[in-house]
Design a binder for these strands. Structure first.
Lengths: 334, 334
DNA sequence: ATTGTATATGTAAGCGCTTACATAAACGGC
DNA sequence: GCCGTTTATGTAAGCGCTTACATATACAAT
């Protein structure tokens, strides 16, 4: 069943069928209906390969994600896929891990499939200063296909990015903590990603603005693992702190476990702030106040950008920011 | 840069280049090396659309998942994607939701992309008795492409399936509970999926084998939501129970919250068993004993099947079972 | 009626590959 | 040295579509 069959059944040429299928306006209304009827009756769908050969697109976008089993990334992909589907696009998912080498390799595979656009989800795209070189592979990809970054900010032709306002969110929370009287705020992060850097920047700026010192041993990189965090804190007797800001909820759960083990009263003796507002924040006791980064907004906004760019719309935001908001639960009292 | 360019540079015909690219053995070793060198130097990759037109495959498999943001399904997809990637396949991800109508629509979109195989992840594929009709769309898909079901058992030509031994796992746990003296075991499930049915069957068989009645009000369908479960139990004073088996960890967390609210000592006054052994099981306090369903084994096994089938290997297991094992933590004491 | 212009449809040449078939080269057996 | 085989390579015909260009038709303006 191909375009010739349809053309014959409808008594027109294949060009006309093609025009109808592609919604060209150069077809009379009667002919269009006639052809559409035949197509419908025959249950014809164009062969994507042939279409691809002609148009060089298959209505597919690539999504690269370091780890789809991560609770945050999987929800991002959920929104992205849903939104793409609405526009008739399918998505090829690729899980690269966190290594740049691997990412490059995965991106190559995606580009080989002639994706229409590439979306990079929440990863280590620092994009400035000494890490600039590390983002070259993104610029390379952008030569072939528009690239959209979720939670990152790489500059470049054909590159579009989005972030939530992590810096500001952490800034506000940190100042609240200080305002409440906290003086030793621990900052736990699990990566060197753009987001993490932003969060830390907000943390440091708040301390500075309040005239407090930024203590090196209060900024700790940890593994993204509940027990690891708990155990680390339990055995780090040297560092003293009265509140904690974490760059994700899983770390925060580890902190909660630590605090309970120590018999600390939360939030009286210790405030704990999580990030991403995932199910983990409500799974533990007390439930964790967590910064919500409005994933669906970022994803929807990004897909709208994708569609605009693919349609040749010229005024697309190269970079946009979405606010973050603290969802108050029981590990803070402000 | 196409096959003609390579052919010219290498001083051979396009047929020879094609043969080299596709690993045909009808090429002399010297020619092969010559061509490979040129390809390498030029950085040539065949156009997938043209290849697709010729071969009718693009080395892509479709993965249909009801909800990728679900903690279990996202980890399944993680394993599936990783394994497929090893074999040089890309995957098109489609999130259908739980409605059959939606699934059909998504499967259509996938089939239109000429995927080589379709993988259906953890969903409501009852596959027997009165629900048989509801799986017709799977058999329809299997006409076009081999279908692989993760955690389900639909019979049919070109359909391959896999499950973990949920029935047995729940059977064993239930008997342990009874052996310990429990007499009112609550069974909380969130779906009517094949797995859930199997779990319930194991539960009922254990009660029967122990000569205990299966009480209707101890089998409850709940929403997959921590607070929903907690609140439901808090206000259901009528039903009395001394232990709970849940079909996923999120439900179990809800039960833990309920038990703590009531001031019950866990596991002395109440045993709680979760399912999937996800991060949720260790995020709460006490940490939840959870049945691990060996997701990676199922996924790896499935992909091996996929590859075998695609390679025309005839002796492939139409259905295989993987064991489940209880991971003991602090909500049980056996 | 005649010409010009807009509109609708058809024809045919690709798009970049695979592969059946044709051809050429190489080689051993006689 | 000739023929039958095997082996290596080339030629050309698709695969199913898009689209530039050609053609045909209709219709308004003169």
């Amino acid at each position: 069943m191909n375009i010739y069959d349809i053309a014959e059944m409808a008594g027109v040429s294949i060009a006309t069928v093609s025009r109808v299928v592609n919604g060209s306006d150069k077809v009379s209304e009667t002919t269009r209906q006639k052809v559409l009827n035949v197509i419908d009756k025959a249950g014809y769908t164009p062969n994507v390969f042939a279409q691809g050969l002609g148009l060089n697109t298959m209505h597919t976008v690539g999504i690269l994600v370091p780890d789809i089993s991560d609770i945050y990334m999987s929800s991002a992909v959920f929104y992205l896929e849903g939104c793409l589907h609405k526009y008739g696009y399918d998505c090829i998912l690729s899980c690269s891990g966190f290594e740049t080498k691997q990412k490059e390799q995965h991106i190559h595979m995606l580009l080989d499939k002639h994706i229409d656009a590439l979306i990079l989800v929440g990863s280590t795209y620092a994009g400035s200063g000494r890490d600039h070189a590390k983002t070259d592979y993104i610029r390379d990809a952008a030569e072939k296909v528009p690239v959209f970054i979720i939670n990152g900010a790489v500059e470049g032709k054909n590159i579009y990015s989005s972030v939530c306002d992590d810096r500001r969110a952490v800034y506000v929370v940190t100042r609240k903590l200080i305002g409440k009287g906290r003086r030793h705020i621990l900052f736990l992060t699990d990566s060197h990603s753009y987001s993490s850097n932003e969060k830390m920047a907000g943390y440091e700026k708040a301390l500075n603005d309040e005239g407090l010192p930024v203590e090196g041993n209060l900024k700790i990189h940890v593994k993204n693992d509940i027990h690891y965090v708990r155990d680390l804190l339990l055995k780090s007797e040297a560092i003293c702190f009265d509140s904690v800001i974490c760059t994700n909820d899983s770390i925060a759960v580890g902190v909660v476990k630590f605090a309970k083990e120590r018999g600390l009263s939360i939030p009286r003796e210790m405030d704990i702030v999580g990030y991403n507002n995932s199910v983990l924040a409500v799974s533990c006791e007390p439930e964790i106040s967590s910064i919500d980064n409005h994933t669906s907004e970022i994803c929807d906004g990004t897909i709208e950008n994708v569609i605009s760019v693919l349609q040749g719309d010229s005024n697309v935001r190269k970079h946009f920011t979405v606010p973050c908001t603290l969802v108050k639960r029981s590990t803070t009292d402000f």
